[in-house]
Design a protein around this nucleic acid. Structure first.
Lengths: 204, 204
DNA sequence: GGTCGTCGGCCGACCGGTCGGCCGGTCTAG
DNA sequence: CTAGACCGGCCGACCGGTCGGCCGACGACC
């Protein structure tokens, strides 16, 4: 096995263990055993446990950003791009389960000097989605809404799925994305609900 | 300070630390210091660290269930009850920050014999919300949708907020709940979007 | 009202186990 | 021969949990 393959293998196996057992409950010996090497070998590839964590974070957010950028030239409309973003996130829950939980739950454990750059990318991705919603408002397909808040709502529906989504389940990730997108874009209500309330102030 | 007050204080201070530093990175000495006692004193009130975690879980889910039940006799309609549930969750992010993160991120650390009962209550609460949405479909205020999936969407928007919501921010929790509820019920799209897509199959 | 026993709240000091990390090597492919 | 992949065995720090005992409040009894 080549050096880069081995490195890759360590990252993904470690992610799997962190997902199952949590970051601090997983020991370097656990990871070594899972990879099939001895503990010192891990230190041949990574200077510390935290650096493995860092690699997982980086891999995950880069995946997300790359996918969006590969698509951004295709001339899809805002609402379609939003669906694709939601599908990206949910797809990674099938293919990169371990990375997902780590990315969402273990950013505090990142070494201080790594936190900044990761957070910057995270913010950049959020910004991408906000801009995309703002473009939809601009073009008239979305109603007047705070893009920041709307993005958080979309992220919430998708990201939260890491808590319950299991790959072998009833719904494939793309179908799930479509259902959530559908709820968000068309709403759950029928016209039996007074539409006036849509822009009313919150009840006391 | 009375015994029950002290116990209560330990739970809430511990929740605060777990929120800030994570469960396993927080030591019993940290908690003791925060409470202002010595470590053995904690063991006077709780048999183990895990039991403090358990107490936090129980307190949180009981709060949520109690609030809903106190309201369930008032004759509110389904869509109103849904708004109130969402508001409950987001309000606890103002008043019980520590509890929230612990409840969402640290269920795996619960001792095996405690996991069952907590999960039962968690399931019960999810069921409550599903039933509430099913009732809305039945009465015609919500369109035909899978209550389970719709509940997960609503939970996602609200629960995910623990990742970014900060009490002192722009929006009070109830206003936030209203915005999210508004997105979910009325949708983000305008009639410039082809409504046919609302029931279309997902694109390949 | 003083004295003494009791009991709950509390703590200093310690223990045993665990874990991240490292040292000093071996082995093998080119 | 050498570079790099690999590892057995170790160390030091840390942490959950315990032990034995202190102290102040309070009730019982004379």
């Amino acid at each position: 096995m080549s050096s880069t393959e081995r490195r890759q293998q360590i990252v993904s196996r470690a992610a799997g263990l962190f997902d199952k057992t949590g970051y601090s409950s997983t020991t370097m010996d656990d990871i070594a055993k899972e990879v099939g090497v001895a503990k010192p070998t891990l230190y041949h590839y990574f200077p510390s446990k935290d650096d493995i964590l860092h690699a997982i974070h980086e891999e995950f957010i880069d995946l997300l950003i790359d996918r969006h950028e590969a698509r951004s030239e295709t001339g899809l409309r805002a609402e379609q791009l939003l669906l694709e973003v939601m599908a990206d996130i949910l797809e990674l829950m099938e293919t990169h389960r371990g990375h997902v939980r780590v990315f969402f739950e273990h950013h505090r454990e990142l070494p201080a000097e790594a936190r900044g750059p990761i957070k910057a990318k995270r913010d950049r991705y959020e910004r991408i989605v906000e801009d995309l919603i703002a473009a939809g408002v601009e073009s008239g397909v979305f109603r007047q809404a705070d893009p920041h808040l709307a993005a958080l709502a979309a992220f919430g529906m998708c990201n939260w799925a890491y808590q319950w989504y299991r790959p072998g389940g009833r719904l494939r990730s793309r179908e799930l994305a479509y259902q959530f997108w559908n709820y968000l874009v068309y709403g759950l209500g029928t016209d039996q609900l007074t539409p006036a309330a849509a822009r009313a102030v919150p009840p006391a």
